[in-house]
């Protein structure tokens, strides 16, 4: 229990630090939000008025503290670029990205576990070179290229979906899921390849351990041993890896969202950074930090359930 409390505390502190760093980064890079709004022909007096309206004339720390207080009281502020409450703007985008990430995560698990097992079993097979090549290829292909490829092949040639015409989730959930599936595949493929490779090496390493040799020499079936004992013992690194994956696929979604024209969080983050829309960026950065830490924490907690020995590590 103490462990959980400590993790939550760490989570909050990390989020505050991340938000502060993001805020500070904005003040270091050049570009002025007032000018971003008013454009090239803005006069100094126009800028001054707007800066005052947006509270940008206050000292840096005051601005940050105001934001922080707002954050803890549930007020994320008003977006500079849309003049709408940040929470209202982000909610629909969050929904889209979350759905996409979940689909992607399911694809990764469904594909990588059987493929990884297979790869470990057949690691001395004749087609090993082909498998390695495909895995390397999938890991190396850039998300941007993969997205264009998938939209082209499945969207334009086979017409499984219409690239650029993302249906609204509220109106057509099935259509949205179908659309997101293809985007999710693009995020998943490199991670599947990584997972397969990781699983394969973990399994092979485990297979070489004494207990496996003993089990087999006692007459147990090789495949049975692999499934019942080896896999269970390889679960801990696998879950840790999946935790990382959970965090990283959100990052991978940015490019994919842009090519597929999906109105998600990643695209919104990029646009808000170039618009110098601090309130939106701050909120998104905090959400992302939360997501990353949450994935790691969840993986840790699950691992402890599976392997109680790990709890000892928690006390150190």
């Amino acid at each position: 229990m103490k462990y959980v409390v400590r993790r939550i505390l760490a989570l909050i502190i990390t989020m505050i630090m991340v938000s502060f760093l993001a805020f500070a980064a904005f003040h270091i890079i050049s570009g002025d939000p007032a000018r971003a709004i008013l454009g090239m022909n803005a006069t100094e007096s126009q800028l001054k008025v707007l800066r005052q309206e947006m509270g940008l004339d206050k000292p840096f720390m005051v601005q940050y503290l105001n934001w922080l207080i707002g954050f803890f009281t549930g007020n994320l502020g008003i977006s500079y670029s849309y003049r709408q409450p940040v929470s209202e703007l982000i909610a629909p985008k969050l929904k889209v990205t979350l759905l996409m990430v979940l689909i992607s995560f399911v694809i990764i698990i469904v594909c990588s576990v059987p493929l990884g097992l297979r790869a470990a079993q057949k690691s001395r097979g004749r087609l090993e070179w082909l498998r390695t090549t495909i895995i390397q290829l999938c890991m190396a292909v850039p998300a941007f290229f993969l997205s264009i490829l998938v939209s082209y092949v499945f969207g334009i040639i086979f017409k499984f979906f219409t690239p650029g015409d993302f249906p609204k989730i509220e109106k057509d959930l099935a259509g949205a899921v179908k659309y997101l599936f293809f985007a999710a595949v693009c995020i998943a493929i490199p991670r599947i390849a990584m997972a397969v490779r990781m699983l394969k090496s973990t399994l092979i390493e485990e297979m070489e351990k004494d207990y496996v040799r003993t089990a087999i020499s006692r007459g147990n079936d090789r495949t049975e041993v692999l499934k019942k004992h080896v896999l269970k013992n390889s679960l801990v690194p696998t879950i840790t890896f999946l935790g990382q994956t959970m965090a990283e696929i959100v990052g991978g979604s940015i490019v994919v969202e842009q090519v597929f024209g999906i109105p998600g969080m990643g695209r919104f983050l990029v646009a808000s950074i170039s618009n110098r829309d601090y309130p939106v960026v701050e909120a998104l950065v905090v959400i992302l930090a939360f997501w990353v830490i949450l994935s790691g924490t969840l993986a840790d907690l699950i691992n402890q359930k599976i392997d109680p020995r790990l709890k000892l590590g928690g006390r150190a």
Partner: peptide, 17 residues
Amino acid sequence: KVNEKAEGLIMGLESGA
């Protein structure tokens, strides 16, 4: 429809969106 990436716009034209 907004899409910051020219590739996305081209894709949208080709797909009929």
